[in-house]
């Protein structure tokens, strides 16, 4: 895929199997967010294919992709500041494939992120950054996705909140949701994910497992390549 004449992502190929957590790390501008936007159909791909459950997502609109079981927590959270927390959550229901199980999922999400439940009557704009991030993930989960895409969920968060968020991700995975996690925090991600791909300059450079998380030399080499 490209932005104008500039290729944003080139020759990228990877798979995420059902139930896995796969990390995607790399320096700024490496093409991580662009990859997620391409999967969601927000940014078009110029060549190649993206498949979900064996079906190509190419040529499908963003909302169709969202309604097929893929949910994105966008970078910068993009919660609706003018709406209440509860209304933000109800918007998450827009992408649901089936109506039943809403109450069960609401209960689960409230348990996962108690602050979101506690502040449900407030304006979402009044929440702190960490609370907004939790709301954005909760909102994405209410569409009952098979695959959850997260774009830098730890960005700008206090360390304790990062812990909360990653703890929640582990629980989300335990529910059978597949996760593709784009992050700046390389070691945290590599340790947490089943596999982590390193992107630099629009291309895939390296794939590492949790045991390689602290192999800083290889990581640094991949970042600078």
């Amino acid at each position: 895929m490209r932005y104008g004449a500039v290729p944003a992502v080139r020759r990228l190929s990877f798979e995420v199997a059902k139930g896995e957590i796969v990390g995607l790390i790399g320096p700024n501008g490496a093409g991580k967010s662009s990859t997620l936007l391409a999967i969601m159909g927000v940014a078009p791909i110029t060549a190649g294919d993206i498949r979900h459950d064996g079906r190509s997502v190419r040529g499908r609109s963003t909302e169709e992709i969202a309604r097929s079981g893929i949910s994105l927590v966008p970078e910068g959270r993009h919660i609706f500041a003018g709406l209440t927390v509860e209304e933000n959550l109800r918007l998450g229901l827009a992408g649901r494939r089936e109506r039943d199980g809403i109450d069960r999922d609401l209960g689960w999400v409230s348990g996962l992120f108690p602050v979101v439940h506690e502040f449900r009557r407030r304006s979402a704009g009044a929440l702190s950054g960490g609370q907004q991030q939790q709301l954005a993930i909760a909102r994405a989960l209410l569409s009952a996705p098979d695959l959850l895409l997260l774009d830098e969920p730890s960005l700008g968060l206090a360390p304790t909140v990062v812990e909360t968020v990653f703890g929640a991700l582990a629980e989300i995975r335990a529910r059978g949701v597949t996760i593709l996690l784009v992050e700046q925090r390389a070691q945290l991600t590599a340790e947490f994910a089943d596999r982590t791909h390193v992107m630099a300059n629009a291309e895939l450079r390296l794939t590492i497992g949790p045991d390689d998380a602290f192999d800083t030399e290889r990581l640094a080499a991949a970042y600078l390549s």
Partner: peptide, 15 residues
């Protein structure tokens, strides 16, 4: 209301 505030995010959510 969501589309009026942020059309792209609304579509990402399945609106």
């Amino acid at each position: 209301r969501a589309a009026a505030a942020d059309f792209r995010t609304a579509r990402i959510l399945g609106v």
